[in-house]
Simulated scan of single mutants.
Amino acid sequence: MTGDRIEVRGLTKAYEGADPLRPALHDVDLEIPRGRFVSLIGPSGCGKSTLLRVVAGLERHDTGTVSVFGSTPERMAAAKAVGLVPQSPALLPWQNVRRNVSLPSRVNRRAGRGSEDPDLLLRMVGLEDAARKYPHELSGGMRQRVAIARAFGIRPDLLLMDEPFSALDEFTREALQLQLLGLWERMSTTVLFVTHSVREAVTLSDTVVVMSARPGRVHEVLDVDLPRPRDRGVVTGPRLHVLEDRVRASLQTAWEAGAAPDDLVPL
């Protein structure tokens, strides 16, 4: 095991009662260098979120090994070195925005030693004027920005994001993608990001991992050679569309395992 990367080797995961010939994940190999932004994309049910939860230490696997920067997922999670942003923001309704963002630094010592200023984080996601508001007073996009700021606040070694923008409208989604990139470029955190959107995967990532239909496997690993930082000009340019076509071509072959094109959206 090495301390400069995430390594998944021969990973298999089956759920009790499921078809034993079609586990959620089968013989998955994946390597993610520290500091990279990597997206997982593939048909619904291909095991993207399951893989994310295994790397997070939230689920056990059946065979294979998982190393997160030279440690186990469980130890990294216990050390508060892993952040998680799910589809739902999961904010505390009785705490205002600022206290939600500062919560991790107030409840664990590791975060308190290396945490970011919550006011700076709120400025970076454009919510400085909402610091004293409560979650019920915010739009869906604003709540998700709070959740992202909170996750970055502890400066996690690894940030796991499970379709965090899937419930948002297209305009809000695109704005949040750029804000996320701004935070990531400042923090240099390793990000593993699950999405169904080809454009989102290409816009955000250094690498796109295409997974095949169940049983989930790594079908292809594609590098994204767009320059950074990625402003609106970069993510609307012709090179982005060429890369999108490459990802879609890879997904076409992944669909042969049984996925339907409607499982993926072209955003």
Rank of each mutant, 00 (worst) to 15 (best):
H61Q: 10
P156Q: 03
L183D: 08
R75E: 15
G47Y: 03
D263F: 05
V68C: 05
G237P: 12
P73Q: 02
S67E: 14
P164K: 01
S49M: 08
V85F: 04
S71F: 04
W94P: 08
R123S: 15
R145E: 08
L243G: 06
S49Q: 05
D129L: 09
A90Q: 15
R106E: 15
D4F: 00
C46Q: 03
P20N: 06
V8T: 04
R132I: 01
R132F: 10
E31C: 14
P23C: 02
V209S: 04
T195L: 04
G47I: 05
T65R: 15
S139C: 10
G57P: 07
A56K: 03
P20Q: 04
A213T: 03
R228P: 13
S71N: 12
H136A: 12
D62S: 13
A81N: 14
E31L: 10
L11Y: 09
R199M: 04
S250V: 09
S44R: 00
R145C: 04
R155I: 00
L30G: 11
L21S: 13
P20W: 00
G126C: 09
R239W: 07
L176R: 08
Q177T: 06
L222W: 05
S197D: 13
R246N: 04
A167N: 13
A77F: 08
G237K: 13
L192N: 10
L192Q: 02
M1N: 13
D262Q: 13
V55C: 07
S139P: 14
S188W: 01
S102L: 08
N108K: 07
E200W: 06
R22T: 11
A151N: 06
Q252T: 14
E137P: 13
V221I: 11
R5P: 03
